Simulated scan of single mutants.
Amino acid sequence: MTGLAAVAKDRHYIAAYEFTRSRETVIVTASLATDGSWRFDVPGGALGGKQDISIVQNRQGTFQCVLDKTNACARVAKPEQDVPRRFDPLVQHPFTDWIDVLLSRTAPLSIAYAEPLVDGDEASRCFSMERNSVTVDAPIPTSTLCLAEDGVITAVDSPWGSLRLSGEVMPPTSRAKLPAVVTDDEPLSTSPPPKPSPKPSKTPSPSPSKKPADD
């Protein structure tokens, strides 16, 4: 696992993933640039699934960018700081800080081989990760991560959702660019997309029975 994680640490690429949570699937684009910066475009990543966003990290910090006609970015964390939970779409963690944890021999995790998350995927190696029994807080939630031999993440199952590689892996850019200018606007809260409204039943409800007429 450590050797494969080391390959993943140095792997830079652009790829699309099917991101499923709350029974809804969107396409997330991951961009891991050669200078160490990164960007993830997350449709429905804020305001309960109503707003598309990007989360971008570079040398100036981490930024949340609104992807609409306003196109504005707000800084959510300074360099070396964690993104506050209320602004964190979570989807980027397997590609960023999870790999560093897997490279640590002192990480409080129990790691074991796991069955492939995608049927017929013989090219990936999958690992289950669970909190060590003596640890109160784990750096990674109980999850399964799959890596190709070249270090590309191919699949993830986690409490916050699942990722499945979709399409071809593309060459990386030299740096991850912000999609808009940085403003003083307040970042948007992140949360799972809203659950679909229940469809009305096609079967009409029975009419109430009529009372018998008085004699």
Rank of each mutant, 00 (worst) to 15 (best):
M1Q: 08
T2D: 01
A8K: 02
K9V: 01
R11M: 08
H12M: 08
A15H: 05
A15G: 02
A16Y: 04
T20F: 08
R23L: 13
E24A: 14
T25M: 11
V26E: 07
I27P: 09
S31E: 15
A33D: 02
S37I: 00
V42P: 05
P43D: 04
P43A: 12
G48T: 08
K50L: 14
K50Q: 14
Q51K: 14
R59K: 15
G61D: 06
V66G: 04
T70R: 11
K78H: 05
Q81N: 14
R85L: 15
D88A: 01
V91Q: 08
Q92M: 12
Q92K: 09
F95D: 01
F95Y: 14
L102F: 12
L102W: 03
L102I: 02
R105G: 08
T106F: 06
P108V: 01
L109D: 12
L109E: 06
A114I: 13
E115D: 15
L117M: 05
M129Q: 11
E130P: 09
R131C: 05
R131W: 06
V136H: 01
A138S: 15
P141C: 06
L145D: 04
L145T: 06
L147H: 04
L147G: 01
A148T: 10
E149F: 03
I153S: 07
S158W: 00
P159R: 13
G161I: 08
S162V: 11
V169F: 07
P171V: 09
L178N: 04
L178C: 06
L178T: 07
V182G: 01
T183W: 03
E186H: 12
P192W: 11
P194N: 14
P196W: 09
S197T: 11
K199R: 13
K199H: 02
S201R: 04
K202F: 04
T203V: 13
P206E: 00
P208V: 08
S209H: 02
K210Q: 15
K211E: 14
P212T: 06
A213R: 13
D214Y: 04
D215L: 02
D215V: 02
D215I: 02
